[in-house]
Design a protein around this nucleic acid. Sequence first.
DNA 1: CAGAATCCTTGGAGATACTG
DNA 2: CAGTATCTCCAAGGATTCTG
Lengths: 137, 137
Amino acid sequence: MSLGNIDVTGDPRTAAERPVCTVLEALNRISGKWAIGILLNVSHGPARFTELERAVPGISRRMLTLTLRNLERDGLIARRVYATVPPKVEYRATDMAVELYGSLTALTQWADRHREAIAGSREAYDREHGLPAGAVD
Amino acid sequence: MSLGNIDVTGDPRTAAERPVCTVLEALNRISGKWAIGILLNVSHGPARFTELERAVPGISRRMLTLTLRNLERDGLIARRVYATVPPKVEYRATDMAVELYGSLTALTQWADRHREAIAGSREAYDREHGLPAGAVD
DNA sequence: CAGAATCCTTGGAGATACTG
DNA sequence: CAGTATCTCCAAGGATTCTG
C-alpha cells in the first residue's frame, strides 16, 4: 500500500510501515499516566522517591514505583542507592531522557497552538451529534 | 540541553507544572493503539473506511470506527459522506493533523537514534533483575 | 460499504496494608 | 525512607453479530 510517501529519514520502508512503529516505540516509553510527570521532575536534577511522590500530584506509591522501574529499564532514568540508614535513593534523568524531553518540545508547541481549536472542535462535535456519555477528557 | 529549566514558550509557570499538562494534552489526542496508524494513513490523502481497515493491520472494525470518531471530534480528521449507493465515506487529515504529524518527527528521530540503546538497556536490566513476566514489548 | 450493538477479556491503575 | 504485596475496579480493546 503506497499512497504517497512521507520520508523524513531516508528510510527505504514505505511510509505506511516505518514511522508508525518508530513513533509508537517512542510513545510507548512515555505512555501511561505518570511517565511524563516523573521524567519532567527528574530532568531538573536528581530527586528522591518521596520528593517525587510529592512533586507528582496524585500519584500513588505503587504507580511511582512501577513507572520508575519501567523508565529505568528503558534507560531513561538512572537509579542510585546510598547505603545509608535510613536508605536514600536518587533518581536522575539520563542523557537519552533529556534528549527525549527536548524532542517533546515540538509536540508541546503544537498543543499550545491548537488548544482552542481542539476545544472548539469538540464542542461543535458534541453539539451536532449528541454527547452520549462518550465525552470524557 | 540545559537542565534546571526548560522554557520553550516564555510561560511564567514553572517547568514542573506547565509542560506536563500541555504535553499530556497532545499525547491524549494520539493515545490508544490505533490513532497514529490511522492518522498516518490519511495523511497521504483521503482514504475510505475499508481502505483504512486494510491499511492498518490488525485493527478491528469497532476500533477503527471509535478511533475515527475521536479523531474527528478533536478536529484531526475530516469525514465526508457521499450520498451514493453503496455509501462512500472519505476521511482526510485536517491541517492541524498534518502539523501534528510534522511535530512527531522529532520524536521519531529520537526513537531511531536510541532504539539500540533502549534495547540494550532492557536486556541489561532483565539480566540483572530477573525478568518476572513483566517484560512485555 | 460503512457502520452500530452486544458481550467478553485484559491490564492499567487506585486503595490499602505490610516491611527491610 | 523506599519500597512490596494484595485486592479491586474500570475502561480500552477484541470478537461476533446485525443493518441502513
